[in-house]
């Protein structure tokens, strides 16, 4: 459903992504692994068109994304959960969810605030609180819930476990598995190998914007060379 083909991205003169190609199939959870500065966030932003790839193709359900604006990419069904969370701190939780709301999509049950509160009960308790009153974990939950309000078919999660207490990370893992059962595909950018293995089917490892590994976790397990070279475990 998502396919990157020889994608190159730059920040000014700095060359961040280097001929990067990989894909995510329908219903699959793929982890994008790599160290700090490996290009994970840039990959996610290049899919979302928040960073415009200089060359290469990004296709979603057969449609080229590179000519589109971020809001058009979102409309097609790509949900973006940014690393910095970027919740609207002056808005209440309900209002934050409202910003994310988009019309229902054919062939899937639309997300409503009520359904989301079942998955994220903490948010319901504080639904009239402003975003800035939330803890880091709650903010992360809100970011995911807000994106789900757009009824995406593919979720881009950029380092959701960063800076969050271990208990919450476990909760997050359950959430991702729930979403997978709902039929969502997920691209999860992560540094936390343990967390990634819990939820995903496949791993893609990048370093300096180049793909170094693409395969199952069993293969990765067996290949200690790759693990030691590109992951800081």
């Amino acid at each position: 459903m998502l396919e990157l083909n020889n994608v190159n991205s730059h920040y000014g003169k700095a060359h961040i992504l280097n001929d990067l190609s990989f894909s995510v199939s329908r219903g699959e959870v793929v982890s994008l692994l790599g160290r700090n500065g490996a290009g994970k966030t840039t990959t996610v932003k290049s899919i979302m068109q928040l960073v415009k790839p200089t060359t290469g193709k990004v296709e979603f359900e057969g449609k080229a994304l590179t000519a589109l604006a971020p809001h058009q990419v979102a409309k097609l069904g790509v949900g973006y959960v940014p690393e910095e969370r970027r919740i609207f701190t002056d808005l209440t939780i309900l209002e934050n969810l409202e910003v994310g709301r988009q019309p229902p999509r054919d062939g899937m049950a639309a997300w409503t605030k009520e359904r989301l509160f079942k998955i994220f009960p903490n948010l319901e308790e504080r639904k009239s609180n402003r975003g800035k009153a939330l803890s880091g974990g709650e903010q992360q939950m809100l970011t995911i819930a807000r994106t789900l309000m757009g009824n995406p078919t593919l979720l881009l999660l950029d380092e959701p476990s960063e800076g969050i207490a271990p208990v919450i990370v476990e909760q997050m893992a359950k959430t991702i598995l729930t979403l997978k059962e709902e039929g969502l595909s997920v691209l999860l950018s992560e540094q936390n190998l343990h967390f990634a293995r819990l939820v995903s089917d496949r791993a893609v490892i990048i370093e300096s914007g180049e793909k170094k590994f693409d395969g199952s976790f069993e293969e990765l397990e067996a290949n200690s060379e790759i693990r030691d070279a590109y992951l800081s475990v």
Binding site: M48, L50, P70, H71, A74, Y80, F88, L91, V99, Q102
Partner: peptide
């Protein structure tokens, strides 16, 4: 507060 994020959520 954050125009880019609003755009990334599908709002033109």
């Amino acid at each position: 507060q954050d125009r880019e994020m609003v755009g990334a959520l599908g709002v033109n």
